[in-house]
Amino acid sequence: MSTPICIQKAPENPVESFLRTDRMPHIWCPGCGIGTTVNCFTRALIDSKTDLNKLSIVSGIGCTGRVAGYVNLDSFHTTHGRAIPFATGLKLASPEMTVVVYSGDGDLFAIGGNHLIHAARRNVDLKVICVNNLTYAMTGGQTGPATPLDVITATAPYGTYDPAFNLPYLVEAAGAVYVARWTTFHVKQLAKSMQEMFKKKGFCFIEVVSPCPTLYQRRNKMGDALDTMKFYKEVSKVKHGAPTNEVGLSKSGEIIVGKFVDRERPDFETMMKAHLEASLGEKYIPAEAPTCS
């Protein structure tokens, strides 16, 4: 006869209710930074008491693009590079929604680069989270628009020689009202920035420097996930308000983190409504909550 064993139910992780647990396990590699950012994201949702029925998440394609598939929200996994224009349509059609764009450096800055700068220019009210693992991870670690000089990638076996974008600098220049950068080492600060961003109206951008131990770190002999955390800790310097032209990344140089930009500028919808109201007066019928007869 066996002795009855009393199994205590593990206390539920508060983050779990934000995830599509029926889709677990996820596809991400052990030590990948993307999961860490999702954890921060769910913490930020909890702490900001966001109405989850009124928040949508839109991703492009890539390892980061898979985030949309794991969060228990209205979630859209779009085409490569097009998360931002999809999100623009979604936001304009349902202005009451908070629309978060969650995607990778390649998706947002290479194939989707044009969309990104135009959405920033228009100041569409989108909250963009960019997981910057410095490579096209999903396809095997090729050179991307954020890959620093002198690193080995699947398509730069002798090292990269084309300069990378400095993401915060580019996004600020294009017109974003909120720009911050953290690494996956800075979980508290990242979650706090996300909360700040949820409250801010206009085009907001957070870059999260994140490890891809499987491809980027391994190929460049930068150790495993733990080594990368140590590296981030060592080389990161918090400099709120740092001029973004001075925050470009290199292979092993310092990583300036912090909130770089937090400014006011009327967003697209506000500009549109004010302008049409002024020009059309009583004839103006603003697009309200969607009707779809």
Partner: peptide, 14 residues
Amino acid sequence: AASIAILGAVWGGV
């Protein structure tokens, strides 16, 4: 962009 913005709008309800 135009061809996917309309799809985002559709999922927004219009």
